[in-house]
């Protein structure tokens, strides 16, 4: 009960109503999202899960303004992004959003620190030293700031990417399979960092993953299947997630019929 009350009280950071996304036309028409209504709360780590082809990545891309929606509205941090121009979206990404990708996506010519500061450099914003030091302290990269991406391990690179996503104090961080390319130890470090961000810095994180153990770090897990949200779990355990997944697996669906 307590968790439900919490959900109701928390203010939304991102919201989608009637979100539809289709690709192609005619015979090749694919419904990636079939009318999704969802609210993401501020100061939470929300995981989006689902089998491949369920639309989980599409949902995140649409929420993050990386992809255009076919129908419906998306509101991020109080602004309707689904009708924004490319220029406005660029500005939004620059100032209010942070991104973490599966394949790290660091700029090879810049060292770790320069990569972290890149969003500020592009936006020509002043560096908040205190904030920067805190982030760097949390990701544990203090000794590696002068290293180029090629001199860092995968886990270290992803932690640089995490720091970069947070350096501009974004309203919301989108993470697309952040642990997809990492070993379990590195994954734990990255997820621990994301948790810290939410718990200590009151950041909002929306994360796409297909791994139940990763999703178990989240405050809330949304399960997508066939372009629709089929489960909404709050503070689930790994087993709880696995159960939900099993309930909505194609095998289960076949058995039900």
């Amino acid at each position: 009960m307590e968790t439900e009350a919490e959900t109701a009280v928390a203010e939304p950071i991102a919201q989608a109503t009637g979100l539809v996304k289709t690709y192609g036309k005619g015979d090749t028409l694919v419904h990636a999202l079939r009318g999704v209504d969802v609210t993401f709360e501020r100061g939470r780590l929300t995981a989006i899960m689902g089998p491949s082809g369920s639309g989980k990545s599409t949902l995140m891309h649409c929420m993050a303004g990386l992809d255009r929606v076919t129908a419906g509205t998306v509101t991020v941090d109080g602004e309707v992004t689904s009708s924004m121009s490319e220029r406005q979206l660029t500005r939004l990404r620059r100032s209010r959003l942070g991104f973490i990708f599966q394949s790290f996506n660091l700029i090879p010519t810049l060292n770790a620190l320069e990569n972290i500061l890149l969003p500020l450099t592009i936006a020509r914003q002043k560096v908040d030293r205190e904030w920067l030091d805190r982030i760097i302290g949390v990701v544990g990269l203090a000794g590696r700031l002068k290293h180029r991406p090629s001199q860092l391990s995968g886990g270290q690179q992803q932690r640089v990417a995490c720091a970069r996503a947070l350096v501009s104090r974004p309203a919301v961080v989108f993470a697309d399979e952040p642990t997809g390319n990492l070993d379990s130890v590195s994954s734990q470090q990255v997820l621990g960092f994301l948790r810290t961000c939410v718990d200590e810095f009151r950041q909002s994180v929306i994360m796409v993953t297909h791994d139940p153990s990763t999703a178990a770090y989240a405050d809330r897990v949304l399960l997508l299947a066939d372009g629709q949200i089929v489960e909404d779990l709050v503070h689930p355990t790994e087993d709880g997630i696995l159960d939900a997944l099993r309930r909505h697996s194609p095998v289960a669906a076949a058995r039900a019929e």
């Binding site: 220029r87 660029t90 890149l118 969003p119 592009i122």
Partner: peptide, 9 residues
């Protein structure tokens, strides 16, 4: 990536 973190066209 650059565009994603806010580099304009």
């Amino acid at each position: 990536l650059m565009r994603a973190v806010g580099l304009g066209r």
